[in-house]
């Protein structure tokens, strides 16, 4: 029987949740016995070409590229999991949500105290278009499970994945349920 396939992505996040996944240390070998790693920054596979069983989403949606990737994940993953504070709440990138995009960009690139000379807001057509604010994943697509933490500990990610892969509800024990 084919192994379940696992995909991961990092949207508006810091890659800390992926680092935490790698933090399961030697259990990575056990994980690779349980799943085939499909589209992921860890495999550098660029596009989906077959259905995937579990998708882990790190980070919220700060730009149109994040939204595109998240929708691709929803379309191709049977179970989609929001992993970490940024995917679930918007996290640190969402701190701009109370300020307004224009004001935020002007402070960063034109009026801020570290700007030398005449600043300019980057406007290259290759740059993804920033959204009006940073959205948690579940405000963009349907999310099946949430794994909070900043980042969730390797132990929590391992517990969660093992539960999903063995057909159990991934109810985190108290000491693994953290928002920070």
């Amino acid at each position: 029987m084919a192994k379940p396939r696992l995909a991961t992505c990092s949207l508006a996040g810091c890659f800390g949740c992926h680092m935490s996944l790698l933090d399961i240390d030697e259990r990575l070998v056990e994980l690779l016995d349980l799943v085939d790693l499909d589209k992921s920054p860890l495999t550098d596979k660029k596009e989906f070409d077959r259905p995937v069983d579990i998708g882990l989403v790190e980070g919220g949606c700060a730009n149109d590229h994040n939204v595109h990737t998240l929708r691709q994940f929803r379309k191709n993953c049977r179970i989609l999991v929001s992993v970490g504070a940024c995917a679930i709440t918007g996290g640190v990138p969402a701190m701009r949500n109370m300020i307004g995009l224009k004001e935020c960009l002007e402070e960063a690139y034109i009026t801020g105290p570290t700007i030398e000379g005449k600043g300019m807001i980057p406007n290259d057509e290759d740059l993804p278009l920033l959204l009006d604010r940073v959205y948690p994943s579940h405000e963009v697509v349907k999310i099946d499970y949430f794994l909070p933490g900043c980042p969730p500990s390797g132990e929590a990610i391992w517990f969660f994945l093992k539960a999903l892969l063995t057909g159990r509800e991934p109810d985190l024990p108290y000491r693994m349920l953290k928002y920070d």
């Binding site: 929001s82 679930i88 709440t89 918007g90 969402a94 949500n97 109370m98 604010r133 948690p136 579940h138 405000e139 999310i143 499970y145 949430f146 794994l147 909070p148 985190l172 349920l177």
Partner: peptide, 9 residues
């Protein structure tokens, strides 16, 4: 594990 309502900011 996550809020069921939309963030107001």
């Amino acid at each position: 594990t996550a809020p069921s309502l939309t963030y107001q900011w």
